[in-house]
Amino acid sequence: MLKLLKIEWMKIKNYNAFIILSSFFALGVITVNYIVFIVNKNMISQTQAANLMGKFSPYNFDKTWQTTSYAAGWLLLLPALLLIILLTNEFTYRTHRQNIIDGWSREQFIHIKIVLAVLTAVFSTVLVFITALTFGLSSGSSFSTEGISHIGYFFLKALSYNMIALLIGVLIRRTGFAIGVFFIYMGFENFISQLLDVWSIRLRSRQNIDLGSMGDYLPMNSADGMLTFPDNPLKGLAKGVMPTDYYWVVLGLTVAYLILFYWWSVNRVVKTDL
């Protein structure tokens, strides 16, 4: 496995798009959180409402894990795009064929890309962990691991995005087209997800049927659904009409979708003409 990974590294270490997109992502995670941190510190916490809510800061410990994961979640598009480009490049240059001709099996070819997707998710998560820790410590509150599970959700979300990106890359093969499909799919799923959310709220308030927030049951939104901006005390008032969070269902679906994407990508590469 390490041998294959070394070869994968030889392919990407001198590739400009890799260097640019990774730096954008790293800088982005830090910058986005810094902006939220500054805005909160200098503006929101000075207002009357903030005083009413008590000393609420999204970067205090136990909240920092959630805030950072949520804010960085928006940037996960970048590593997903990078993975699409790295994979579809192989199809464009036909190097996927050459790798196999030279002596990789089809399984090795797709599995090393999946390992790359997992590693990208791991690196993103480590970066978010360090960022959350740094902002948490600079907010002046005392360290706590409460709510650190959000870092885990972030990892699942990163992995889900990466696996969807790989699947689309394997199915579409052309770089530009695959990126287009990725965005269109994302927009489409968000649209359906919001319709389902509205429907869930109606079912709950009118017929008292609670199926949870059904918008969170779709592939990209299931990973998304677990990452929300920290609740402030006012939000509790809305609980009467909102559907219950079926946390375990959403978590289960996220994992199920990951398995599906894995199986579909591998199957496609192993079974069809390349």
Binding site: K3, K6, I7, M10, K11, N14, Y15, N16, N89, Y93, R94, T95, R97, Q98, N99, I101, D102, G103, W104
Partner: peptide, 27 residues
């Protein structure tokens, strides 16, 4: 040693780097 249809290499890498990848895959 197989050469099929078209020369398939990474466009953004030098000849030598491309051969290093091929050599690594061929062990």
């Amino acid at each position: 040693g197989t050469f099929l249809e078209t020369p398939n290499f990474y466009h953004y890498l030098s000849a030598e780097r491309n051969l290093k990848i091929a050599a690594a895959i061929k062990e």
